[in-house]
């Protein structure tokens, strides 16, 4: 029954991956831009929380109160000042500019914080668990993480589906020029979308900082995990991203169970398998292509 435990851990991990992936998926869905800096920005949030915790000695989850608005603001400003400028030039400029941003942030983190591993300490919640059977125990933290992921995703879906702004967002994603004819400020919409994406990345970053240790070079792998979750789950669907994250998490957990070094590789292989068998992902929305 050790396998059941492994799978459950994988599912709960999937919640975190879904959070990683949401921001990436949102930005692509709205603007057709793949933000190559997404992983590094998630990491930046973890470092931000670290600084706050170092200064004020609060619980890392409380730091979210600052991290979320700061990340939102960062996304909004970056979009308005930089990324919006790249949208007219075709596929290359947004990719190259976001890649440049990633390089800058990663190396800034290296300079400021050095290459040491860091961790966010959330106290007892990290280790307390619920025992279900004598072979299966679920930690409070992973469970809370998963629930948080579902809540965030659900909230976001509701926001996009039911609110006036959400409609404007969907309209702008469909047809930017026509949206302008509806009194929608498309530049502002894009900036808010990026802000939301980074705010969610901020939540993901803080959670990952609590969950494991992190270092400045981890941005790459975070981007890759987010990307794999998006592709496995299928483009254009938030709930698909959750499923994708879960599958990735389970694959990795099983891989790690077989051999500790296979953690990442197992995830990559499952990703490649999905790419071969169903390139559009498992639950793609119609009309959206990778």
């Amino acid at each position: 029954m050790a396998w059941l435990n492994t799978i459950v851990q994988g599912v709960l991990l999937g919640g975190l991956y879904a959070l990683f992936a949401t921001g990436l998926s949102l930005v692509f869905g709205v603007m057709r831009v793949v933000n190559l800096a997404h992983g590094v920005l998630t990491l930046l949030a973890a470092y931000l929380a670290l600084v706050i915790v170092d200064l004020t000695d609060v619980n890392p989850f409380l730091a979210l109160l600052v991290v979320i608005p700061v990340m939102f603001g960062l996304g909004y400003v970056a979009q308005r000042l930089l990324i919006n400028l790249t949208l007219a030039g075709g596929v290359l400029p947004p990719l190259l500019v976001t890649f440049g941003i990633a390089v800058i942030i990663e190396n800034t983190l290296l300079e400021v914080f050095s290459a040491d591993s860091q961790g966010l300490n959330a106290g007892r919640i990290e280790t307390v668990s619920i025992t279900i059977t004598d072979r299966l125990a679920i930690g409070w933290f992973p469970l809370g993480l998963f629930v948080a992921a579902v809540v965030v995703l659900g909230g976001l879906q509701l926001f996009v589906d039911r609110t006036r702004f959400g409609r404007a967002l969907r309209a702008t994603s469909d047809d930017r020029e026509a949206a302008q004819l509806m009194a929608i400020n498309d530049r502002h919409i894009y900036a808010v979308a990026m802000g939301i994406a980074l705010a969610v990345a901020g939540i993901a970053g803080v959670f990952t900082g609590v969950r494991t240790t992190f270092g400045p070079l981890d941005g790459a792998i975070l981007l890759i995990f987010a990307f794999e979750a998006v592709i496995i789950g299928g483009l254009g669907s938030l709930w698909g991203t959750l499923i994708g994250g879960i599958i990735l998490g389970v694959a990795q957990s099983i891989g790690a169970q077989l051999s500790p070094g296979w953690f990442q590789l197992a995830g990559h292989l499952v990703f490649l398998a999905v790419l071969v068998i169903r390139p559009t992902g498992l639950f793609p929305r119609e009309g959206v292509a990778a």
């Binding site: 409609r167 969907r170 309209a171 994603s173 469909d174 047809d175 020029e177 026509a178 949206a179 004819l181 009309g287």
Partner: peptide, 11 residues
């Protein structure tokens, strides 16, 4: 009202 209608397909 633009040429080609341009209604929003996902709405």
């Amino acid at each position: 009202t633009p040429e080609g209608r341009r209604v929003f397909p996902s709405l």
